[in-house]
Nucleic acid binder design. Structure first.
Lengths: 205, 205
DNA sequence: TCTTCTATTGTCCTTTAGGACAATATCAAT
DNA sequence: ATTGATATTGTCCTAAAGGACAATAGAAGA
């Protein structure tokens, strides 16, 4: 079983390598060279708003490696993208920062012929009956653990709607420092602005 | 982690014990004696035509052991029963004779907050998802009703993280028009920027 | 001790967001 | 026919956000 990560940023996230030490990463599907008949797993790291890339990549995988399973790892998961991915032939869709244990569970599920969806998406599909029951979101905590303590402070303030100036006042630092922590947070989580950061830290996709 | 099998026939199946050697079995939920706060898994062995028993048992588990996860093992799986079980609060539904590896996968999934469904059932759900999807909370719908149809379109795109330019492309209008609709939306909802708008429309504020 | 990570702040710059102050066209209701 | 709400787009402007390219200092580990 080979795990092939396809990420536009060509870098592996820590949770991926924790789950699959033999993981390899490429920027493009066409860079992958394995036997057509190999039963492998492709993990597509969907950067924000990369629908076109996603479409092309899944098609390319299906055409080139019919025995492979494709799972989409979304930085900013949303139902429309999940529907798109599954419609194209992916067998899994989950948060890019799901921790290693979850990724192993995903592997197990899809390798047994199942389809993986995050709990949020599934619960929307099934109904709202269980939404009253508090379920700690693993994706949110996993994302938070990628940040340093100070970055976490700043990111959480930004995620509830405060401006840089307000955060600076709140934390007794300069606005410049707030920007530094936020930029670092964007980088670490692979998002492009504070709104996408907020979507992740609010567990909303 | 304790695995508690509830079977009217009060006997363990071989695949269960293969997966969880410490499994214990009872005939009734009320026979179970564990701490209320224990995080355990209940596996309900649903005989054919045991809907009433299933309903009562799941309710009893939810009431008595709020931290436990409930999975239904069906002798003769069918979608109606699956829908019933999940509607009542079960987090998994699978064949009673699934092999041990699958049961372990189920455990992993539900313990990470996921929901387990067989492939065909899941695909059925995904097929009808367009109708079920997105039943927003009343606060969210109330907010949306304050907006004109076009403002709603734009606001929702902004709330999932798109920039003005991206929204403009998506809706085939100019960026200027996007700004106009967003400004109007801010005004109507009494917020100052797109992040606060997103918090409202995502039910996070 | 040396290195790495973290926290802090600086300047300069470009892009994006949002408001001010408009005009024009359509459509429905009065 | 006139009014009002909606949808569209324009220019000009300010402020906020975010990146580039830094420096400095402390703390923790190898």
């Amino acid at each position: 079983m080979r795990h092939l990560f396809i990420s536009p940023r060509n870098s592996l996230l820590a949770n991926w390598t924790a789950a699959f030490e033999s993981a390899s990463v490429s920027a493009l599907v066409s860079d992958v060279h394995i036997a057509q008949t190999d039963v492998s797993m492709f993990w597509l790291h969907a950067d924000a708003n990369s629908h076109e890339w996603l479409k092309a990549s899944i098609s390319e995988i299906l055409a080139g490696f019919p025995n492979a399973k494709t799972v989409v790892l979304a930085n900013v998961p949303n139902q429309a993208e999940a529907a798109l991915a599954l419609g194209l032939g992916a067998v899994g869709y989950c948060h890019a920062y799901s921790d290693a244990a979850v990724l192993l569970a995903v592997e197990s599920v899809v390798m047994h012929g199942g389809i993986w969806l995050g709990q949020d998406l599934l619960q929307h599909l099934i109904g709202v009956s269980r939404q009253l029951i508090a379920v700690p979101s693993t994706a949110v905590t996993a994302a938070l653990e990628l940040l340093t303590p100070r970055e976490r402070d700043v990111a959480q303030q930004a995620s509830i709607g405060l401006s840089n100036k307000e955060i600076a006042r709140e934390l007794n630092i300069t606005e410049r420092t707030v920007k530094a922590h936020l930029s670092a947070s964007f980088e670490r989580l692979g998002v492009k602005d504070r709104l996408q950061l907020a979507l992740i830290l609010n567990g909303k996709s």
